[in-house]
Design a protein around this nucleic acid. Structure first.
Lengths: 151, 151
DNA sequence: GGAATGTTGTTGAATCTTCAACCGTTCTCG
DNA sequence: CGAGAACGGTTGAAGATTCAACAACATTCC
């Protein structure tokens, strides 16, 4: 089916690392998401979108670029931005120089929601991740994740 | 609101590590999920469930324990098992010694589906993760994830 | 025994995500 | 120029997830 005759299985050690990784990933994400949502009504993805917008020139981004930046499909971003628009955090503006495109623009309310959510969220990230690691581990983690994040 | 006066923000370096981590996480998960699904019709969570069952005594687990083991809510597991049951990969059996409970039992078809899916999936994990890291990095990653996975 | 309390697991509705099809615009290139 | 390919974004329906409420059984403790 796959064209492979033999499979190189994971070693015992690799397997245990891999499973730790999966559990850690899933715990971190669900805890952060739960707390963020409880504290601010935002999901992690929504928070990420607002962060991206807030750091962009003019607090605005093209849909495509925004989708890439938060690693989400075009379609999902469309729906998500529609919801954020309904919440008043974002507004759509047609793009003048490319008539296919739209800008997603951070509104004042969106900026306020982000500012309100950030402290608690950052505190959780610190507590859930950085407080558990030594500075050396953080450095190595950075190197590892840099290697893993590329396409 | 949170009772905190000042926030300890992330340092520049911590922030960059954190964002790498988020991107790596989301890339790895979505790629593995996509490939697994394409190759076997299973989602990552379904695959995880089948793996857990396959390693359990009698290839069966109580719902509660299974939910904890794959880190998913009871409710989500119920729906998920219903789907897996519909696919023929799992069957439910009432628990004899605790009449509230059910066993989720791996069927022969489920075992076969898992065996068929595993080689390709493992190959992807290797390619997407372990091949990019030195043995030392893998070891440190294991230590880090061990620290991060606990509750 | 039996009332409170805690567990297990399910349900259904609301919400969110995915997937494939689609429309209009821009780009490419003979 | 103009036909076709590629891009940017949306749509709607199907499928998955969450959330709060619930039913059934088990445990505790008087």
């Amino acid at each position: 089916m796959t064209g492979m005759d033999t499979v190189e299985w994971l070693s015992r050690h690799e397997q245990s690392v891999w499973r730790s990784l999966l559990r850690a990933q899933s715990r971190i994400e669900s805890e952060l998401d739960r707390d963020l949502h409880k504290g601010s009504g935002l999901s992690l993805v929504e928070y990420g979108i607002l962060v991206s917008l807030s750091e962009a020139e003019g607090e605005r981004m093209r849909m495509r670029h925004l989708a890439d930046s938060v690693i989400v499909s075009k379609s999902r971003l469309t729906h998500q931005i529609t919801r954020l628009e309904r919440m008043g955090h974002v507004r759509r503006e047609p793009c003048t120089d490319d008539r296919r495109g739209y800008w997603a623009v951070l509104t004042a309310e969106g900026r306020a929601a982000l500012d309100a959510a950030a402290p608690g969220h950052v505190a959780k990230v610190r507590e859930r991740v950085f407080d558990r690691l030594t500075p050396e581990q953080v450095t190595v983690l950075g190197e590892i994740m840099a290697a893993l994040e590329e396409p």
